[in-house]
Amino acid sequence: MSAASGKMVTVFGGSGFVGRHVVRALARRGWRIRVAVRRPDKALFLQPLGTVGQIMPVQANLRYRWSIERALEGADAAVNLVGILHESGRQTFAATQAFGARAVAEAVRDAGIARFVQISAIGARPDSPSLYGRTKAEGEQAALAAVPSAIVMRPSVVFGPEDSFFNRFAGIAGLSPFLPLFGGGRNRMQPVFVGDVAEAIARALDDRATPGTIYELGGPEVKTFRELMALTLETIGRERLLLPLPFAAGRLAASVLGLLPKPLVTADQLKLLAEDNVVSAEAIAEGRTLEGLGIQPTAMEAVLASYLVRYRVRGQFAGHQSGL
């Protein structure tokens, strides 16, 4: 029987892209899981991932400390996955990734919970040119200040069936004759599989990670943005022009596209694209990586085709001829 069997973990933001995979990984280990989200009715799809009564969505809003405290009652561990890729209305970087992270961390501390994982991102630092990166760094600092035993996970670009990276550009390729390469597409990335990120978080709660440590999670390959766009096109079987765009042109486009409900790119994201997004040499040397946690990173080629198939001209039937 798992050491986690019967123990309770509260997962804030558990219904999101990374969250659903974290919930699955924890359920397999025998955790009882309280999924803390703003709309519990939209998290009911998680319940079949566990046994009857094992996964329970509850209401929590990071703006209200009492709702966080209620979600943590009786918990043995906590995970904070709440974050956004772009701002919209009251959902700002400061509110979710800085203030919200601090509220969760302080409530975790006051509840006497030592096992706590805070998700962040590679590139998080106080002097980041991006507000996203700066608020992620604030969230890290708040977590470690309130709970010194906290473990911070910094993934690179996360890929998987519900991702907003490969799905987004594959979708654009189905409509546009070109894919934009902001800044020439020279920045490097190290995409990491969502299942590996979830496993890293689960192992942290298994006490297989070093308390008070920041881990950097990347996949087995480092590729430029241009190479990732070429891989996307190859996977979906489409030929499109890879069009280099100076950042100045990107900022102009972002001023318009940023007004959409789900913008292709925002001015803040362009600042992130101006930098590399890879695991640091220091993290590798110190074992603060997936490999350091005993996880062999999953290659993109092993996963991408399984969910990008719908963007092929004939979908899953591309490359097949009818026998009729």
Rank of each mutant, 00 (worst) to 15 (best):
R20Y: 02
L290D: 00
K262R: 15
T235Q: 02
S88Q: 14
T51N: 05
Q47A: 15
Y64R: 14
F317Q: 12
H320W: 14
E286V: 00
A121M: 07
I122W: 05
A95S: 15
S306M: 01
I33K: 04
R310D: 10
Q47I: 10
V23S: 06
P220W: 05
A305E: 15
G174M: 13
N187I: 03
L264S: 01
R238Y: 04
E87N: 07
L217F: 09
G112A: 13
F17I: 08
E140I: 02
R314S: 11
F93C: 05
L293K: 09
I113W: 04
V35C: 03
I84P: 09
R312A: 13
R240H: 05
L46G: 07
L243P: 07
R154P: 07
G219K: 12
V22P: 05
A124I: 02
G16W: 06
T235R: 10
S67R: 03
I172E: 08
L270Q: 06
L259E: 07
I68P: 10
E301G: 06
S120P: 12
A299L: 07
T266A: 12
E106I: 02
Q296N: 05
K136F: 09
E234M: 08
M229V: 09
V79G: 06
D110S: 15
A281T: 12
E199G: 08
W66F: 11
A98Q: 11
G13P: 13
E140W: 03
A95W: 02
A150F: 07
R186M: 01
G139R: 08
F93E: 07
G250C: 14
A75P: 04
F45L: 12
S2H: 11
P244V: 14
R186L: 09
V108Q: 07
G139M: 08
L44Y: 00
P126G: 12
V52A: 13
T92R: 11
R188Y: 02
